[in-house]
Simulated assay, not measured.
Amino acid sequence: MEYSLSGTEFINGKMFDSNGKLTHKTGNRFKLFPFVTHPNSVPVEDLSQLIGTYLCKIEDQKPVEITVADLVEKLKSETEIEAGQDALFYETVKQLFFDSEKQLRPLNLQMLSHISHKEVGEEKVADFLVDVLGEKENLKKLVSEAKQNEFNATNVFERLVLKYLLCDKEKKDDKIPYYRVVNAVTQ
């Protein structure tokens, strides 16, 4: 993607108001940075949601939400649980794979991609990172390989859980992509 801007377009464009004062309006001609005008309502304590959204954006997927009870019911169909051990099995799945907020623990990339964003700013930053950190098809290939390597190295119980973490295809939209100024950080 190439973009050129003449001095005249710069001065007479949408970057300056009628008084000649520089104004900030994102995405009028191209998108360079994911400016977020409203700060997050909740302080960022970890990057799991951002990274999970980033992984989903790379693969054009949207995770299907799953609860502890749904996962336990699906796992019961493939495992034998001794009579009277249902509550213990439920608690084990809950403690191993979910945090105190009933969100999946990010034990691997597939589980990490099921941690959805809570703030619009995180989605904008994820869009930015996908557009500027490399060619999307190459990123998709690398993420797929990494997920497969993790799957091969994981235990049987995690493999059963991963089997039930489903994603829907994210519909493509006609968003203006962020403009990559320097290719030095791409792979």
Rank of each mutant, 00 (worst) to 15 (best):
K118H: 11
I115T: 01
A146I: 03
A184K: 12
G20Q: 04
C56I: 01
D70N: 15
Q110R: 14
P39Q: 12
E91P: 02
I11N: 05
A146G: 04
N149Q: 13
D17G: 07
V72L: 02
V143N: 09
F30V: 08
L47E: 10
V72Y: 07
L71C: 03
A87H: 14
S144P: 01
K124H: 08
T186K: 15
T37F: 15
T186S: 12
V143A: 04
G13D: 07
E80N: 13
V182T: 09
S113C: 02
V132K: 00
K57F: 05
A87N: 13
N19R: 13
K171R: 10
K141D: 04
T79P: 00
Y54K: 06
Y178T: 05
K94T: 01
K175V: 05
N155K: 09
K172T: 11
S41I: 06
C56A: 11
S113M: 11
K14G: 11
Q49F: 03
V156E: 14
D70G: 03
D86E: 13
L142E: 09
I51Q: 00
V120E: 10
Q49G: 00
I51C: 00
E123V: 09
L133F: 12
F97L: 02
K175E: 08
A146N: 10
C56L: 06
V44G: 03
P106R: 00
Y3E: 09
N138L: 14
V93I: 13
N152F: 14
E137L: 11
Q61F: 05
S100P: 01
K169L: 04
S48H: 10
V182D: 14
N28K: 15
D86P: 05
K175C: 07
Q85R: 14
G13I: 08
L47Q: 06
Y54T: 06
T154F: 04
N138D: 13
P43D: 03
N28H: 15
T186H: 06
E122M: 12
S100G: 04
T23S: 08
V185M: 11
F33R: 09
T186Q: 14
I176H: 07
L139E: 00
E137I: 09
L96S: 11
T26D: 12
D131N: 13
V132E: 01
H24M: 12
F16N: 09
S6D: 04
G134Q: 05
S6A: 10
V120L: 09
P106K: 01
T67H: 10
E101F: 12
T79K: 13
K57M: 06
V185Y: 10
